[in-house]
């Protein structure tokens, strides 16, 4: 008895209403405009401060000299690319189970962001590798995993684009992301195992020696800045996706009219 009264309680009904409202594309669109702008400016500020601090003012690292400074870009990008993949899988699951369109839109538009981060991590890794290892590309465990992750991202994007109907693309990509997220730990484990088997431990990437506080603060700030920038970017991309996918609804038409040719 108490169960049914719970499901009929005003608390539960309000919760459901709130949830539906929050996940409605229109509500999200309107909310994300000011939110995205605020987060975007904040991200820019933090990124400028942390990168200027990290690249120009933080002290030189004892073992690696100046080349260590690339970790201020490389590490946040690498973190993000993995976090975004996990987020895409989680959003895909939400979309599949609760059929929430917004989750699919967000997941889809996070793919290029995650892919860019993986690519950025690979490029900065190569730039770091040249002075450190003497080669642009070394089959380091982390770099190899990152390369595989980039392929996973490219697969997601290609699948989205290959499907004729975007709704099918959403669901297919969600399944692929879920399969990928189960496999990612296995891939990482196997690549690391393979790497230790074939290469004696060299100077490991991103396992930077214990950081002095004067390096640590800009480093943490850079990570925060990257995360915020990714969120702002994802909000912006998702807003466009919403307009495109909801273009038949009245509010989206009005919005498109309002924006005129500036979309």
């Amino acid at each position: 008895m108490w169960q049914s009264s719970f499901w009929q309680s005003s608390f539960w009904k309000n919760l459901v209403r709130w949830f539906h409202k929050w996940t409605s594309p229109k509500w999200f669109y309107n909310l994300s405009r000011p939110l995205g702008a605020w987060i975007g400016w904040l991200a820019l500020l933090i990124l400028v401060v942390s990168l200027v601090w990290g690249l120009a003012f933080a002290p030189i690292e004892r073992l690696q000299g100046n080349s260590y400074r690339i970790i201020f870009i490389h590490v946040p990008a690498a973190f993000l690319s993995q976090a975004i993949y996990a987020a895409i899988a989680a959003l895909g699951l939400i979309g599949l189970v609760w059929r929430i369109k917004l989750a699919f839109y967000l997941a889809k538009q996070s793919v290029p962001i995650g892919a860019s981060m993986a690519f950025l991590a690979l490029v900065t890794g190569a730039i770091w590798g040249k002075p450190t290892w003497g080669a642009w590309w070394v089959w380091d465990a982390r770099l190899t995993s990152m390369l595989v992750l980039l392929f996973l991202y490219l697969g997601l994007w290609a699948l989205h684009n290959a499907m004729e109907r975007p709704e099918s693309g959403d669901r297919a990509a969600a399944i692929l992301a879920l399969v990928g997220v189960v496999n990612l730990p296995i891939i990482k484990f196997s690549v690391e195992w393979w790497n230790t088997l074939h290469q004696p431990a060299t100077l490991k990437f991103t396992e930077a020696p214990p950081m002095h506080i004067s390096m640590l603060i800009p480093f943490l700030l850079a990570i925060l800045g990257f995360y915020l920038a990714a969120v702002a970017w994802a909000l912006k991309r998702t807003r466009l996706e919403i307009l495109q996918r909801e273009r038949r609804t009245q509010w989206a038409r009005d919005e498109l009219d309002r924006l005129g040719g500036n979309v």
Binding site: V148, L149, F151, L152, L154, G155, A158, L159, A162, L176, V179, G180, N183, I186, I187, F189, S190, V191, W193, W194
Partner: peptide, 17 residues
């Protein structure tokens, strides 16, 4: 072609072990 792109990364652990 798409199949290759989607599946290759998932085959990596099998290849390694």
């Amino acid at each position: 072609l798409l199949l290759t792109l989607l599946i290759m990364p998932l085959f990596v652990p099998v290849l390694i072990f």
